[in-house]
């Protein structure tokens, strides 16, 4: 019996967020195929609505990946991103969904290990709590 494939969406900033993905890929790292990345200029652009809509449209977990705080190219962007994620986490419990399904991460461009670990964490969250809606795909 195969595990249902976790559908994970990641909003990555075009700076260190995507740089961390690229370095991992260019270091031969492998990660779960069903991760879908959406690139944004800065994680400060991410709206709670984007995260919630993704969950509505089939995502089992959503992460936001930005530059390290205080190292954000746009100064406070990844701090804003974390606030949005925090806001959505609060709403999730009201919606009856586990807070862990939505998470904020930060990375620098020199880390090849961090992105695969982020994906692994989110895959584990989906394995632990099951798909959203409890249906098998």
């Amino acid at each position: 019996m195969t595990e249902p494939r976790p559908k994970i969406v990641g909003f990555c900033c075009e700076r260190h967020g995507m740089d961390a993905v690229v370095l991992a890929a260019r270091s031969g790292k492998q990660f779960e195929v069903s991760v879908r990345l959406v690139q944004v200029p800065c994680t400060g652009r991410v709206d709670g609505m984007h995260i919630l809509r993704s969950l509505e449209e089939g995502a089992d977990a959503v992460f936001v990946l930005g530059c390290l705080e205080k190292n954000c190219y746009y100064d406070t962007g990844s701090i804003e991103g974390r606030k949005r994620v925090g806001y959505v986490k609060q709403m999730l419990s009201e919606l009856g969904l586990e807070k862990e399904r939505v998470e904020m991460f930060n990375a620098a461009s020199s880390n090849s290990w961090v992105f695969p670990e982020i994906v692994a964490k989110m895959v584990e969250v989906v394995r632990k709590f099951g798909p959203v809606g409890g249906e098998k795909r």
């Binding site: 530059c67 390290l68 705080e69 205080k70 190292n71 930060n106 620098a108 020199s110 880390n111």
Partner: peptide
């Protein structure tokens, strides 16, 4: 050398 931040630079 490693990046020395996890959340904050």
């Amino acid at each position: 050398w490693t990046c020395k931040g996890l959340v904050e630079c």
